[in-house]
Structures are given as C-alpha cells and as structure tokens.
C-alpha cells in the first residue's frame, strides 16, 4: 500500500519583530538558516504581502521594521518545532544586542 506523505494541520501565529534593525540582511539570513532546517513549509504575511519564509529575498521584501507584526503559517510534519524555533529566534532579537 502506498504511504501517504505525513502532513501537518497548519499552525498560525502572530509574532512582532522587536529588534532595532528589523528584518535586515543578517536577520533574514538567520531566519532562513532556521526555516530551511525543517521539512515544513512556511508562509509569512505582513501588510498585504505574503512571502516564502525559506527565501532571504522573500523575507526582505517585507521591509519589516521594529514593531511590524508577522502572521506566520507553517505546515508539514515538523511544523510545531519549526514554529517554536522561529518564535525563539524572533524573541531573541536574532541574537542582536538591541
């Protein structure tokens, strides 16, 4: 019998960017280094834009500054871990001091 691919239910969470510089190149690269470790897909919505959370260019297109709310949707076999990892990264200000 053919095994169906494992699927998630899709999780969504709103998280606000809080580092001083927002989603600049280094923060976007760290974001993608984190999301590409997982199999699940990730879509980020912010201010009428919707981008792929595994693309540095995609994330930078949001021009998200400090205080911007991201609506994050993850879906796949490891969606819960991925969402947690991303939430930690954003809440730790991408390892930046401010």
């Amino acid at each position: 019998m053919r095994k169906l691919p494992e699927r998630g239910n899709m999780l969504s969470k709103k998280i606000t960017i809080n580092n001083k510089l927002g989603l600049h190149v280094r923060a976007s690269a760290k974001f993608v280094n984190t999301t590409t470790k997982y199999k699940s897909t990730i879509k980020i919505e912010s201010e009428n834009k919707s981008v792929n959370g595994k693309s540095i260019m995609g994330i930078m297109m949001l021009a998200a500054k400090k205080g911007t709310e991201l609506n994050i949707h993850v879906e796949g076999p490891d969606e819960q871990d991925m969402l947690q990892d991303i939430e930690d990264l954003i809440k730790n200000n991408f390892g930046e001091k401010e």
């Binding site: 927002g22 600049h24 976007s28 930078m60 297109m61 500054k65």
Partner: peptide
C-alpha cells in the same frame, strides 16, 4: 536611516527575485 535601508533591501529583493 534604517527605514530607508529596509526599503532598499525590499526593492532590490523584488527585482532580483
């Protein structure tokens, strides 16, 4: 001007993607 910096990144990304 951090906001300008982010806008430049967004505009470049739109073109380069």
């Amino acid at each position: 001007d951090n906001e300008q910096h982010l806008k430049i990144l967004a505009n470049l990304s739109e073109k380069f993607s």
